Simulated assay, not measured.
Amino acid sequence: MNIFFLEFRDPLFSIIVFFALIFIITFLSYWWGRYKRKEDYKHLDRFLKQFRSLPTQDELKELVSRGELSQKSWMLLAASYSKSGNYEKSIDIYNEILKQPDNKEQIEIMYLLGKTYFKAGFLERSKQIFLEILRKNPRTPQALETLLLVYEYMRDYKSALEVLEPLDELKKDVTCDTLYLKALELLNNAAVDSQEKTEKLIELYLKSRRMSYMIFEYLFRVNPKLAWEHFDSSESENLVDLLWNLPTDSLNMDVISSSSYLRELYTARGDINLSLKSSVFEFDALINLRGKTNATLSFEYICSSCKQLYPFAFHRCSSCHSIDTINVEFSLTKDYHRDFGEESNSFQ
């Protein structure tokens, strides 16, 4: 009997018992977790069977009011509908959640509803929701920023500029937005003639040295001579597609000959013969293959903020809504506009 008690008090025995308890607890926890997950999946599967075909608004109202899912789960489902482009169902869910009594996240849900209306193209409804949010909570920067986008899409640039005032008071940097909206307002003002527009755009550019793509895109189109007079050669790489697509009779040889990049660009295009090679691969290839290949440059546009790629130029990124973040990328491609009757090798 004494031997038994000695073994019971033995430290090694205690360690064995300790690890045995840990094993038993871990084993039970593991199987209990698996059981709970299985039950949760069954419940979720039963719930999702109701969405094999999209519910009507009345069915949706009943499902939300039934309370089988938490409000957070409904919001995730609404966000999923919105992400997949089914804005109607997303809007229905947000509207039904807002009808629930004692909603503590009303402002957040109203904001999500306003954004969904904006994505769906219901700009007036989106505007009204954001104005209501700001009436209750004036210092809501997210609502102000999205309302700014709504006004811009509605081409109500005066109201958009007014939104910048409270954003400025909230210590948000609105310098670029102000310049961008002033330029947009000017470009879309039919009462202002092209000469006055060019003068004011140049004034905006010289004050800030920003929005160069937007401003020179317009200047090179309506008044190339004036554009070259105010052109900064350091901007050549950012405006390479505009420069490449300029008509030959719009070129300024004095400015071109003073810049190595422009000399290489227009030698590669075949307008002049002032460079024998280039550090830019595409230019160098075109310079060395002049008259021997049917090739040109194609352009893509990348947002430097979110890295989204576009086949067309932009001034505000439609993905992250950043302004003046356009980066131009180019590559060699076959020139389909060249006369195929000419004697030249196809560029593969």
Results as ranks from 00 to 15, higher is better:
I3L: 09
I3M: 07
F4E: 08
F5R: 00
E7G: 06
F8C: 07
D10E: 11
P11H: 14
L12Y: 13
F13Y: 11
V17D: 11
F18T: 05
I24F: 12
I25P: 15
F27C: 14
L28A: 14
S29K: 15
R34W: 09
K38D: 14
E39H: 04
D40H: 15
H43D: 12
L44P: 10
L48E: 14
L48K: 13
P55C: 01
Q57W: 11
K61E: 09
R66V: 06
E68S: 04
S73I: 14
M75H: 08
S84P: 12
Y87G: 05
L98I: 13
L98D: 11
E108K: 08
I109H: 05
L112I: 09
L113I: 04
T116Y: 08
F118T: 10
K119F: 02
G121D: 11
L123Y: 01
L123W: 00
S126M: 00
I129W: 03
I129S: 08
E132T: 02
R135G: 11
N137Y: 05
P138I: 00
P141W: 04
P141Q: 05
E145I: 10
E145P: 12
L149I: 12
V150K: 01
Y151P: 05
M154W: 11
V163K: 13
T175Q: 10
T178I: 15
L181E: 01
L187M: 10
L187R: 05
S194E: 15
K200Y: 02
I202K: 00
E203A: 07
Y205C: 03
K207S: 02
R210V: 08
Y218I: 03
V222C: 09
K225N: 14
W228M: 06
F231H: 03
S233A: 10
E235R: 01
E235I: 03
E237K: 00
L239A: 01
N252G: 02
D254S: 06
S257A: 06
S260M: 07
S260A: 13
R263M: 03
E264D: 01
L265E: 06
L265K: 00
T267Y: 03
A268F: 08
G270T: 10
G270M: 07
N273S: 14
S278Y: 12
V280P: 06
E282K: 02
G291P: 07
G291C: 10
T296Y: 09
Y301L: 02
Y301K: 00
Y301C: 04
I302S: 04
S304R: 04
S305D: 12
C306R: 03
K307N: 09
K307T: 13
F312I: 06
F314C: 00
R316G: 06
S322N: 10
I323H: 04
I323F: 02
N327C: 06
E329H: 02
F330K: 01
S331P: 01
L332G: 09
T333G: 11
D335S: 09
H337V: 08
H337Y: 11
R338K: 13
R338P: 01
F347K: 12
Q348T: 15
